[in-house]
Computed example of a mutant assay.
Amino acid sequence: MRLVAEFEIKCEALPLVEVASSVPEATLILKLQFNHGERPLFLVTVSGSSHQEIGDALTAAYDVGEWTLVGQAGDTHRYQVIPALSFEEQLGGHIDDLSGLESLATADAIIERIEVLPNGWQQTGWFASREAFDNFASFWQQNADFQLSRLTRDGESEPPGDGLTDQQQEALRTAYELGYFDIPRQASLETVAAELNISASSVSERLRRAQTQLIEETVATTWPPLPDRTTTH
């Protein structure tokens, strides 16, 4: 029985978490290339922040060796990042079972999506069996804060938006009903925030993450290739 899982690993020692913390308004999607020895290359797609802000955060991060801007489309930037530390070096002081960490690399699983958050990673993964998922979850439950959002069988259909959290759905629905998405706009971010009884910055973050999720579920696969641009630091 193959499974699809969505979960969050709260661990501030994970790679690039410092970068996400430096630019909390940005969305960072990480892909790993494991064919580069003990330090896999990071491919990072960033939206919601300027190149200058992201570049400054990457340069200042303790776990980033070198980084290169490899493409840009609108306010979305893509970077190749060479880590300064191996996973063992980065997580060794925070995880007791380093051999267990190494075994995860050969688990019967494919991590399809990693979003880097200011306090950890939010991931979507495919697991060949319940045992494979349980082993993965057990490791992170013992070594970090593991929170499961969704676990379904491979092949179960889901309408777009099922990946949204309850808070994101509430924020989208409230903003829509108040006219925040109307043209011209009928409600301000502050009005939506007052209705939800949270801050305007919190509403902005929820709406941004919700819209990013919906885009990835619907039209992201039709995204045109990024132009070839190279800037190395």
Rank of each mutant, 00 (worst) to 15 (best):
M1Q: 08
E8L: 08
I9L: 05
I9D: 01
L16N: 04
V17K: 01
V17L: 01
V19H: 04
A20I: 02
A20F: 02
V23L: 05
P40K: 09
L43F: 12
L43K: 08
T45D: 08
V46F: 03
V46P: 04
V46M: 06
S47Q: 06
S50G: 13
H51I: 15
G55C: 13
L58M: 06
D63H: 03
V64G: 06
G71I: 14
A73G: 05
D75T: 15
H77P: 03
H77Q: 12
R78M: 13
R78H: 08
Y79D: 11
V81S: 08
P83A: 11
P83M: 11
L85R: 09
L85T: 14
E89C: 10
L98I: 13
S99A: 11
T106R: 12
T106G: 00
A107N: 13
I110T: 14
E112S: 03
R113S: 01
V116R: 04
N119V: 06
N119H: 09
Q122P: 02
W126K: 05
E131H: 05
A132H: 00
N135F: 01
F136T: 08
A137L: 03
Q141C: 12
Q142I: 07
D145S: 10
F146M: 15
F146G: 13
Q147K: 10
S149V: 10
L151I: 15
L151G: 09
L151C: 08
S157C: 09
P160A: 11
G163D: 06
G163W: 07
G163R: 11
Q167N: 15
Q168W: 13
T174G: 04
A175F: 00
P184N: 08
A187C: 02
L189Q: 02
V192P: 03
I198S: 00
A200I: 01
E205M: 04
T212Q: 03
L214M: 00
W223C: 07
W223D: 10
P224T: 15
P227R: 09
